[in-house]
Nucleic acid binder design. Structure first.
Length: 196
DNA sequence: TGAATGATGCACT
DNA sequence: GTGCATCATTCAC
C-alpha cells in the first residue's frame, strides 16, 4: 500500500503534451473511455508509466501517477522493482557480479525513494503495459485506488502546484500550465531534493 | 549539487 | 526513421 504524493494532469486532444493530442489511436484509446481505468504506456523504451483515466466516456483525460510514498509491503515493492529491472537487457546480459551489485544497490534504496518517479511507481507495483484497461476502482483489482480517510486529508497549502516535467516539446503554452500537483516538501516526490 | 550521457522499444509520421 | 510524459551513473565543480 502506498500514498500518492505526486501527479500530473493530461487533458484531451487540445493538450499538446497529452498522448490524446493526435486523437484516438490504438494505443491511447482507453484515455477516451470510462474514468478509473488504467492506461499504461512505455516511455524511452524502458519505463512503464501508470495513468488513471479521469473524464467521462468519450472525453480524453488522464492523471499520471508520478510518485507514491510506500506504506506497507515495502519488501514486495523492492522485489517487484528487482524483477522489472532484471528484464532490461543491460542487466540480463551483465555478469553475475554486476547483477549482484545492482541487487545490492536496490536493497540500499531508502523506502521514500522506492517509487519516487513515474517509471519507479510502475516497477514497484509490477505494472506494465498489459495492465492497460484494468479497473482501478474495482475492490477486487490487485492494484486499486482507495480514498484517503477524511482525517488525513491535506490542507490546501500542503499541495504545491507546478508545471509538468519533461513536456517542453508541447510548446510554451502547454508546457507552462500548472498541471503538476505534489505534496509539499515530501521526501517521496520525484526529482532532486531541492525541487520538492 | 548539478549537468551530461547512455540505455532501449515502440508508436507515430 | 524519428523522437519520446525516464532513470542511474559518471564526471566536473
Amino acid at each position: 500500500m502506498a500514498r500518492i504524493v505526486e501527479v500530473e494532469a493530461y487533458l484531451g486532444p487540445e493538450d499538446l503534451a497529452s498522448h490524446a493530442r493526435f486523437g484516438r489511436t490504438a494505443r491511447n484509446a482507453v484515455m477516451f473511455g470510462l474514468a478509473g481505468i488504467a492506461y499504461v504506456y512505455l516511455v524511452y523504451g524502458m519505463y512503464d508509466c501508470l495513468n488513471v483515466v479521469t473524464e467521462e466516456d468519450g472525453v480524453a483525460g488522464a492523471v499520471l501517477i508520478r510518485a507514491v510514498e510506500p506504506l506497507e509491503g515495502i519488501e514486495a515493492m523492492r522485489r517487484a522493482r528487482f524483477v522489472v529491472e532484471g528484464r532490461r537487457r543491460a542487466i540480463r546480459e551483465a555478469s553475475d557480479e554486476a547483477r549482484a551489485a545492482a541487487a545490492q544497490r536496490l536493497a540500499g534504496v531508502p523506502v521514500t525513494r522506492l517509487a519516487s518517479g513515474p517509471g519507479l511507481v510502475a516497477a514497484a507495483f509490477g505494472i506494465d503495459r498489459t495492465w492497460t484497461g484494468t479497473d482501478l476502482c474495482d475492490p477486487a483489482s490487485p492494484v486499486r485506488l482507495e480514498p484517503v480517510p477524511a482525517a488525513d486529508a491535506l490542507a490546501d497549502d500542503a499541495v504545491r502546484i507546478t508545471t509538468r516535467i519533461g513536456v517542453g516539446y508541447a510548446g510554451p503554452d502547454w508546457a507552462d500550465r500548472p498541471l503538476r500537483f505534489v505534496r509539499r516538501s515530501h521526501p517521496s516526490v520525484s526529482g532532486p531534493a531541492a525541487a520538492r
